[in-house]
Computed example of a mutant assay.
Amino acid sequence: MQLHWSPKSPYVRKVMIAAHELGVVEQLELVRSVAAMLKPNPGLMEVNPLSKIPVLVLDDGSTLFDSVVICEYLDARAGGRLFPAEGPERWQALRWHALGDGLLDTLILWRNEREREAPLPTLIAAFELKLHASLALLEAETPELEPTPFGIGHLALVCALGYIDYRFASQAWRTHVPRLAAWFGAMQQRPSVRATEPVDG
């Protein structure tokens, strides 16, 4: 299997954490691919018309995207443990996943806006408000996150919080959410998370 990949993409990181957790990293051939919002990549568009990563090219030539679809595919191949099969545990895991992905979407839009020549202050303020509201919710839910087995929801939240550190270090987000900060600190010690830290270059 080929994975179109970049060391800086938080969505690629989701797939790589899943691959490490599931023990399938060695089955992936990593293909370095550039995906920029303002410069669609013709080569990448051959496997994903949206010119976005990650994309998983299967051995039969078919393709899967986006990150959650790829994670679920790898999970199914490996016997399934990142996605609870049913019941309240499944819906909570998918809810946490949606929050993590939604927060990532917000952060990426925020980063794009702040790099414009004349960022819109009201839009920047809206992004910041959503960040702090999300962190407050997660702080309140950390007592539930902590004992729940590591799954797709945890994985998405780890990637979102890691992206804050990577692209928004000035936010100093840990100050007002100590329990969430402690939980994330523990998550950062997982081998899968340590192996997938974003890097420039």
Rank of each mutant, 00 (worst) to 15 (best):
V47G: 00
P49T: 09
L50W: 10
S51W: 04
S51I: 06
K52L: 12
K52T: 09
K52V: 06
I53G: 00
P54L: 03
P54C: 03
L56T: 00
L58A: 06
L58V: 06
D60C: 04
D60Q: 06
D60I: 06
S62E: 08
S62C: 08
T63Q: 08
L64N: 00
L64K: 01
F65A: 09
V69G: 04
I70H: 01
Y73R: 01
Y73H: 11
D75V: 11
R77E: 10
A78K: 07
G79A: 05
G80D: 03
G80I: 06
G80K: 04
R81H: 12
L82T: 03
F83S: 11
A85Q: 12
E86N: 15
E86L: 13
G87E: 04
G87N: 06
P88R: 09
L94C: 08
R95H: 13
H97K: 15
H97R: 14
A98C: 09
A98L: 11
L99Q: 13
G100Y: 01
G102A: 07
L103G: 05
D105F: 12
T106P: 06
T106W: 12
L107T: 01
W110C: 05
R111D: 11
R111F: 11
R114H: 04
R114K: 10
E115L: 15
A118G: 13
P119M: 04
L120S: 14
P121C: 02
P121D: 02
L123Y: 15
L123N: 12
L123T: 15
L123F: 14
I124C: 14
A125S: 11
A125V: 09
A125L: 05
A126Q: 13
A126T: 13
A126C: 11
A126H: 14
F127P: 04
E128C: 10
L129Q: 13
K130T: 10
K130D: 10
H132D: 02
H132S: 05
S134W: 07
S134P: 05
L135C: 04
A136Y: 10
L137G: 09
L137A: 11
E139G: 02
E144P: 07
L145P: 00
L145Y: 07
P147C: 02
F150V: 06
F150W: 07
